[in-house]
């Protein structure tokens, strides 16, 4: 079943699994409130946007690229939903997703046509998307139809719609990345772009696919975020950019590309949500979280950069 490089990539997910398990045990020991139905439901609710945006980032990283615009795409999605869900109804959903994909394709176009460094191009996309979002929605507000909330978040339970949606997205990507030729090409391109080209992979196509998919999935993350807060917020997505990279690295995805599995990213996203949950349950200063996140990020980078191929 898990043959070949799939197995090697799953092995890279194990540290994240261990970390998530450890944090679960630790938090449940430290706080009796942890294992309540309400708190577990809350965990799943928080996992949904972070998990999705981390998935988006991971797909880009597999190809050896990075996307620093995923956070602003989430903000844009909340703005579109907040402005559109009441008048457009369900049509707001595809509109949001298309906008996300378009943002990703814009980045890819800059990389392919203008030959701009992918990192910098995604930074430029981030600035432009932020500007557009602020034009649409200069300050937090708008309204998302409660119908959506009822559908997704009404029931506070661990195995409610949020967790199932998140797992479904991961399962689909796990399948596509591991068992399709495109998925194989993405890994190959990230592993060694020159070798992949010599074997017939079109780099442009990989860029279009990974940035497009990441844009769409980031928009999906923003969509659920807007449903949860029942409104839009032009800046809400920004912290998610670093979180997404953080979760991907923590999940064993190599920055240089070609390595890692979405399974690890899911565990890592869970671990980050657990850290957040622990801070809340223990009543620690929420501002400390930003510092903790920065440190976790550095720690993850140090841990995984050491074990991966060393630079000559």
């Amino acid at each position: 079943m898990f043959d070949g490089s799939l197995r090697a990539n799953l092995v890279l997910s194990l540290p994240a699994l261990a970390l998530a398990a450890l944090l679960t045990i630790l938090t449940s020991l430290l706080s009796p409130a942890f294992l309540t139905e309400a708190n577990l439901g809350n965990l799943a609710t928080r996992l949904l946007p972070l998990g999705l945006v981390a998935l988006a980032q991971a797909i880009v990283l597999f190809a050896g690229r990075i996307d620093l615009s995923v956070g602003t795409i989430m903000s844009l999605a909340t703005a579109i939903m907040a402005l559109g869900s009441l008048n457009l109804g369900w049509a707001a959903v595809p509109l949001t997703l298309v906008a996300g994909v378009a943002c990703g394709l814009f980045t890819a176009a800059g990389v392919i046509l203008l030959r701009i460094n992918p990192l910098v191009m995604s930074l430029a996309t981030a600035a432009i998307v932020k500007g557009v979002t602020l034009l649409l929605l200069p300050s937090p507000g708008g309204e998302v139809d409660y119908v959506f909330y009822e559908l997704v978040f009404e029931r506070e339970a661990l195995f409610g719609p949020p967790l199932l949606i998140c797992l479904a997205a991961y399962a689909l990507m796990f399948l596509l990345l591991g068992w399709s030729r495109m998925g194989r090409a993405i890994y190959a391109f990230g592993s060694d772009a020159k070798a992949a080209f010599a074997n017939g992979v079109s780099g442009a196509r990989v860029d279009l696919v990974v940035y497009g998919a990441a844009g769409g999935i980031a928009a999906l993350a923003g969509l659920f975020l807007s449903i949860r807060i029942l409104s839009g917020d032009p800046l809400i997505g920004e912290p998610y950019t670093l979180d997404s990279v953080s979760a991907a690295i923590l999940g064993g995805v190599a920055l240089q590309g070609g390595r890692g599995s979405v399974a690890g990213v899911l565990f890592a996203a869970l671990a980050l949500v657990l850290v957040n949950n622990m801070f809340n349950l223990l009543g620690l200063d929420t501002n400390l979280q930003a510092i903790a996140k920065g440190l976790i990020f550095v720690g993850a980078l140090v841990f995984f950069m050491r074990t991966s191929k060393s630079e000559a």
Partner: peptide, 9 residues
Amino acid sequence: ETAIMPDLT
């Protein structure tokens, strides 16, 4: 100069 993808089998 072999075109072998290092992370594939």
